[in-house]
Structure formats: structure tokens, C-alpha cells
Design a binder for these strands. Sequence first.
DNA 1: GGGGAGCCTG
DNA 2: CAGGCTCCCC
Length: 584
Amino acid sequence: MDPNSGLLPPLSRACSHLAQPCMEGERSPVPREKAGGSPFAWSPVPSSSFADPDWFWDENIQAKRARVETIVQGMCLSPNTLLPDGARAGEAACCPERARERKRKQSLPVQQGPLKPGPAGNHDSRKGGPRVREQLHQLKQQLRHLQKHILQAAEPRDAAQDPGGSETDKGPLSVKQRKGYGSRPWVVGSDHYQGSHGDLSGEEKHRASDVEYESEEPRFLPCGARALLEILRKELTEAVSQAVDSVLQKVLLDPPGHLTQLGRSFQGLVPEGRSEPSPPERGACKDLFPLATLPRRSLDPPRYPVSLRMFSRPCQGPPANCPLTTPSQVQENQILRQLLGCGPSSHWSSSLPQDSSFQSHPSSESALRPWGAARLRPSVLRQQQYPLPFASPPLERLALLPSVKLEQGGLQAAPDVLPLPSVHEGLNPGHLKKAKLMFFFTRYPSSNLLKAYFPDVQFNRCITSQMIKWFSNFREFYYIQMEKFARQAISDGVTNPKMLVVLRNSELYRTLNMHYNKGNDFEVPDCFLEIASLTLQEFFRAVSTGKDSDPSWKKPIYKIISKLDSDIPEIFKSSNYPQELFRN
DNA sequence: GGGGAGCCTG
DNA sequence: CAGGCTCCCC
């Protein structure tokens, strides 16, 4: 896979850490609305808008408008569309796995039903829909009514101003009306948002042209009409404000129902308070960013892409600066963070779009935006700035990984649809996920170790073999990647294996993380990075010295790596742990 | 011969 | 990821 795409000259890799700000720049272009169509026509519009005493109204109304629109949109969605694209894609992507799981469960019965957010889940959240919809409908009617009055007041002028008034009224909001709306700050619409919003879709994109009305309106209205207009405007604003607040209050104060549903339907409003913009592949609702201004109810830390950790963590540098002899706080923090971060978003479904997009479009940069900093390849290669002190073997340090003990009471999670598997149920996806995370610490677990770390599994021959087989598969993938990247480094002209260091913003790290840590809900321990670096170097040495001509040339490497297993944090022994981490 | 690990395949 | 197979070690 992806054999050619990574062959960048070594020099470009040294700048990989600079990619982040550069990409940030790309990611936040000047909004088209502000850039304007023509820089010369109507250039005073923005400043005149700011000088307008009604400008603050505009702000207020725009915000409320955004909220109303979002709610309306949410309720206009059919039940089938309540799931974000990403979730649906994820479900589709994980279908084979589910199928396999089902197949596996034929011999190992597991209650899989409740795992799927089925119609029952939607039912609860939908039952309040008609009520809110009714209110919004009334609100719309009210709006329309008031707007009609306003338009009547301004009718002669508008007609004169709009010779193209032959445009017919096609929908609830006619073009003519909408042009009028565009001139009035209280109008419910969607200027800012790209994408389609029901009957407002296409026209909204030409909103820039509508602003011209804004500055003209007062000039053509007689004093009386203007006064009437002002009164109507205030009344309308108040009515809208109250109605919106009322509706929002109802929606927001009904957490298990509406808010949850809205939050899951629109990823801009994830209840746990993630402020991170949705990745593009999940961003079917990217136009809903105004919802980020809604009150947050949780203090959950934001989930950040791995590549950003490189710059956010204090000991992201060379392992020498972060010796593993004292990583307990890091470990503890990371586990705490993970436990805190196990919000309602699905680690399974939410991560799948990323994963699938990566696998199917390995060279698609846009699909990998969450991993932005890792785009320069092969970025596993680092020049001198991060030498890894393998000369002083890390082996003894690796054995000193901490055993973090957390009170089980602190593992209480929000109730959810995923039932706790009982002891007799065999292996479930949570066990698999846990096993993958354990792979970060141990590549060659003994059956006794597995038994110790899966207390909720009743081991028998079959179960043990299956789990051993899991790790065998994990290793297989791991070594394949190592060989692949080692060969890539060789083809890139690298001669010193010490230059090969796996960092958190590297391509190899990303690949491994995606495989063992889908959803990125676990912070990969530093010890794994050291092992990965060492493995990579071993493969590099073997290949570069031609040992790969020997059919069993990998065995010595396996032997080395098999001695480098680390202690697994005690927290993994908790039978609750996988559920706490993966329930949702 | 049994069991574990790796390789290949679907 | 699982099944089947081979190889190797005890």
C-alpha cells in the first residue's frame, strides 16, 4: 500500500513540524462573505454596517437565527438522517466487523443487540419533536405575519428597487421576501452557513449581494414608515427572541432527549463539550459551528489529534528528556484523561470514517486533516534534533513502567445502552479493543498474563487461542509496518539507523495508532514509541545489511522485541475498564 | 506429540 | 481477524 507517496526528500521531513501552522492557515481562509465578491463594489458595506446602531441587533439576531435554523433543520431531518454521515459511514464500514463478530458470537453468544443505536434510541428523543416543531411553526407564522407588515410598509420602494420582481414566489420564503429579509437583521435565514438548508439553500449563497439593501432601506422610507418599521422591528425582535429562548430552553433542559439527539445529529453540538471542529470526513454538519456557542455542560478535555500532542505535551521530545523511570504521573494523567474523555461519542463509529478514509485514500491529505502534522513523509525519519539514546539501552527503563491504580469508584460512567458483559459471555469488541491497547505494552503476552488482565473472561482453550491469535495478528501488522517503513527509509537514502525514531507526529505512528487505537481514545505510551523505534532500527539494519535474503531473517528481530514487553498498567486489570472506555 | 509462533489466505 | 498450515522447541 502506498508505496510511492512517501518518498519525499529527507530535507522536507525536517520541516514537518512546520506543517501544522501552515495547514492551519489553509484551514481558516477568509470567509467568502467577508472577502466579498468584488472588492470595489460596495466596499463601504461592512463599515457602514458597523456604524449602524442596529448592528448589535444584527449580531443578536444572527445568533438567534442560527440557533432557530439549526433546530428547524434538525427537526426537518428524516429519522434516517438523524445519524451524521460519519456515523452512518462508520456503521457501514464496521459492518464486516460486526458480521464477523456475529459469526464469532455464534459460538460465543454475546448480547450484541443493544450495542447498535437502533430505532428505539431515536424514538425517545423524537417524541418531543412535534411539540417543538409546532412551536417553531407558530414562530414562523408569526414572523411571516410581521414581515408582511414590514414589506407592505416598504412596498413601493422595494418595488421600485427591484425591477426584476418578476421572480415568483416559489416557497414559504419567496425570493422577493428573502431579498427583503436580507436587508433586515432579524430575519431567520442562513447567511453564514454554507450548504443547503431546506428551501433557503441556493439563494443564501448570494447573500453578499443582499447587503446592498441594508444601507438603502432607511433612505427611502418616510419618517412615519420608518418609525413604524422601527416599532415592528423591535416587536419582531422581541418576539423572536422570546420564542427562540423558549424553544431552546425546552430543548436544552431536556438532556436525555433532545439535546442528546441534537448533539449526536449535529457534531457541532456534542454534549460533552468538544470544541474541536469536526474533521472534514465527519463534517456533514460543518455548517453548524454557531452551535459551539451554546452552553457546555461538561468539563471534559477536548480530544485532540495525536499530531497535536506533539506540541502540547511537555515531554514530547526525545525520550531522554522524559525518562521512563518517572512516567507515573504521565501515565496516570493519561489514563485519567482517557477515563474522563470517554464521552458519549462513539469510539467505534466515530473513528471509523477516519480509518476507512485513510485506508481507502491513503494519499488524500484532506481526509487526514486530524493528522495534519504527519503529512510529510516519511516523517518517521528525524534528523539530529531528536536522537534517541539507544546507546544506553532502554530495556531496564522499560521494565519500570508504573502500575497505576485507580479506585474503581472513579470509573463510574454515564449510563448507556451498552450492557456490561457478564463473565460467561466470552470475547466481545471491548475485549478486542482492550487487547489492542495492551499491545502498546506487551507484544508477546502469555496466556497467564491475559487471564490476569481479562478477569471478566472465562478462559478456555478456544478463548485463549483466540486471544493469543489476536496478538499474533497485532504483531503481524506491527512487523509489516516496521519492515515497510524501514525499507522506505533505506530507499530514502538514510544510512544511520539512529536517525529512525518514531515520534507522535510521524506517519508510522499514525498508522500504528490507527490500527491499535482507533478513535484515538488512548494515549500511546512512550515506551511503545521506544519499542517501535527500536524495531524500526532493527529492520533497517537487517534490510540494509542484506539479511533479508535469509528466509528467517526476521526471527532475530522477533527475539529482540519479544524481550521488550513492558508492564501493563494495573488499570487494565479492571474488568470494568474496557466497558468504561468503550461503552457508548 | 503438543503447543506456540509465524506465514499465507480469505 | 480467523482458519489452516508449517516449522520449531520441549
